[in-house]
């Protein structure tokens, strides 16, 4: 499902996230329009994955509000949430005997009715996702027989088959070689043009500033946006990662 370009897709108001009482991050306020791609940067332990888990409704916000297309996240039922937000998780515990097609088809779960019968639109969504991720040749292979990169593409295809307007991608480039990274970012750019909103956690600042439309930097102060043309962005990144500024390449 795609939202009309320009409309607010995700709104965060004073969002605090983490694991109370040990870890409290934020507050963060942000509005994302449909079609925008926000890269989330930050050192290990800055709460990037925890932020995504909060945005998908897996964790309760410690304070503040999350709205998706104008609706408060907590008012949505789990299937309603899954039809609006899809998460490509970092280290899922997948059943490696599932075939690629079976995995991708599981993305349609929130769209299925009482008896779980797949309709034409579900089958088409699965095929579209397989095509987009160049997986047709591997469709009947079990996940256990795939390389790390192929498995990552299969998981991305499942996320796409979910048909959500907001995609949360936790380190989507993991295990991908240069060619597949290039293809991934081309695909993300295409999805953005179709009106999907993307939030991706990335580890390479250069990739983040090149591929995303906006960049969010998480650190000790919670989180703030860094303008893509900010002349001090290298210093900001060096301070957040606690590394010398010459280690930051953009």
């Amino acid at each position: 499902m795609s939202s009309p370009q320009g409309k607010t897709c995700l709104a965060l108001e004073g969002l605090c996230w983490g694991y109370a009482p040990k870890l409290r991050l934020g507050p963060l306020s942000l509005k994302l329009r449909a079609g925008e791609h926000v890269a989330v940067l930050g050192p290990n332990g800055a709460g990037k994955t925890t932020l995504l888990r909060t945005l998908v409704g897996d964790l309760e916000p410690l304070a503040g509000k999350v709205e998706i297309s104008g609706e408060a996240l907590e008012t949505l039922s789990p299937p309603q949430r899954a039809r609006r937000v899809a998460l490509l998780a970092q280290n899922p515990q997948l059943d490696l005997e599932l075939t690629v097609r079976e995995l991708v088809a599981l993305g349609r779960t929130p769209h299925l009715g009482l008896w779980g019968r797949e309709g034409r639109s579900d089958l088409e969504a699965v095929d579209r996702a397989l095509t987009r991720c160049d997986l047709h040749a591997l469709a009947l292979r079990p996940l256990g027989a795939l390389s790390g990169g192929e498995r990552q593409r299969a998981r991305l295809a499942m996320t796409l088959a979910q048909g959500a307007q907001l995609l949360l991608l936790d380190e989507p480039t993991t295990h991908l070689d240069l060619r597949r990274r290039h293809e991934l970012f081309s695909l993300l750019s295409e999805l953005g043009q179709q009106g999907l909103t993307l939030v991706s956690v990335l580890h390479e600042p250069a990739e983040a500033f090149r591929e995303a439309t906006r960049v969010l930097l998480l650190g000790a102060d919670g989180g703030h946006e860094v303008a893509k043309d900010d002349p001090e962005r290298r210093d900001l990144l060096a301070a957040a990662y606690a590394v010398p500024v010459e280690r930051i390449t953009l």
Partner: peptide, 24 residues
């Protein structure tokens, strides 16, 4: 169980994976 069958399939994604496709 038959009414839950498609949700039971999502346990192949792990507990977190099942939650991410809308299954409690």
């Amino acid at each position: 169980l038959r009414a839950q069958a498609h949700r039971l399939n999502t346990f192949g994604l792990g507990m977190e994976g099942a939650a991410s496709v809308g299954v409690d």
